[in-house]
């Protein structure tokens, strides 16, 4: 039972990291109906940006809340900038071409960033700066709860609420929803779809930036291919929760984190990914649009 609670904590902590990245996938999908495969590599660039900035400022071994905030802002800034650039240069020219072209371009951008990153940053893993002191918040009855677990969870939940507020309570959010449901009608109503789409990329990429600092803090090893697996899992989490749905992405990510954890705990560590993904396939058979996704019939 003690173990079960510990596994629960581990799984939720892992899931909240997937959630931050899954939010970016789901936002872009919601508005453009495209899967931005480069998202996980924007996350990688965020980690490297904060690594270099921390070294440049000389705060790479100065763990404090101040360091955390500086690195979060740095990473969010560079990620937003990169997200914006990718949208402008790679996706916007293809806005009116078939969906498949954008999809292939997204994969291309992703590979470009991964392997370009190996040239620019070097392929060997770097050690992420000390962001915050990790300390045990609660220990006893065989359960260890550390400050990192809580920080990651709180930041993910805050990000989710902030996003929810932005989309459902602000004018900008209304414009985003309008573009999502019909870009041409939205533009007739005075909304500039290009600007709204750019804004979506900025917000989504900033979330990836937050994720990169939190992951770097918790697992202090970063390399140019770090986005691959975590991006894949976050993407699957977004699909599982119902792609396009904000709370769905978070729910999906938590399920993903927990199922990985429980597979190792009670079945087999060797088949962790296989079984975790297997569980997802089973869920999708019964809920094809994802848990919170709306299933809409395409009218031809």
């Amino acid at each position: 039972m003690q173990d079960f609670v510990q596994h629960l904590i581990n799984g939720i902590s892992l899931g909240s990291i997937y959630a931050l990245i899954a939010l970016g996938y789901t936002m872009v999908y919601g508005i453009l109906k495209m899967i931005n495969f480069a998202h996980s590599d924007v996350y990688m660039v965020g980690a490297f940006a904060s690594y270099y900035v921390a070294r440049w400022l000389g705060i790479d071994s100065n763990p404090s809340i101040g360091t955390l905030i500086i690195l979060l802002l740095t990473s969010m800034f560079f990620c937003s900038l990169l997200g914006l650039l990718i949208e402008r240069l790679a996706y916007r020219p293809l806005r009116n071409s078939p969906k498949l072209n954008i999809l292939i371009t997204a994969i291309g951008v992703s590979l470009f960033l991964e392997y370009g990153g190996q040239v620019v940053f070097g392929a060997d893993p770097k050690v992420f700066p000390d962001v915050m002191k990790d300390f045990v918040l609660f220990s006893g009855a065989g359960i260890e709860l550390t400050s990192f677990d809580i920080t990651v969870l709180i930041v993910s939940i805050l990000a989710m609420f902030a996003l929810d507020f932005l989309i459902y309570k602000t004018k900008l959010g209304k414009a985003m929803r309008a573009v999502s449901s019909n870009p041409s009608v939205a533009s007739l109503m005075g909304v500039n779809p290009d600007r709204i789409i750019s804004f979506t990329f900025i917000v989504g990429s900033a979330l990836a930036g937050v994720g990169s600092v939190l992951v770097g803090m918790k697992y202090p090893k970063i390399d140019p291919l770090m986005g691959m697996m975590i991006g894949l899992k976050a993407f699957v989490a977004a699909v599982l929760g119902g792609i396009g749905s904000i709370s769905g992405a978070v729910l999906g990510a938590l399920i993903m984190g927990l199922s990985e954890e429980m597979v190792v705990a009670y079945l087999s560590s060797t088949y962790r990914d296989a079984l975790a993904f297997g569980i997802l396939i089973v869920i999708l058979i019964f809920k094809p649009a994802g848990i919170l996704g709306k299933y809409s019939v395409e009218k031809v």
Binding site: Q2, D3, Q6, H7, N10, G11, S13, L14, G142, V215, Y219, K221, M226, M229, I230, E260, E261, M262, V263, V264, A265, S269, R272
Partner: peptide
Amino acid sequence: AGDIDFKAQLTQIRS
């Protein structure tokens, strides 16, 4: 190799 989270295995071992 490449994994970053090992807490599931370690919790298992701890018991």
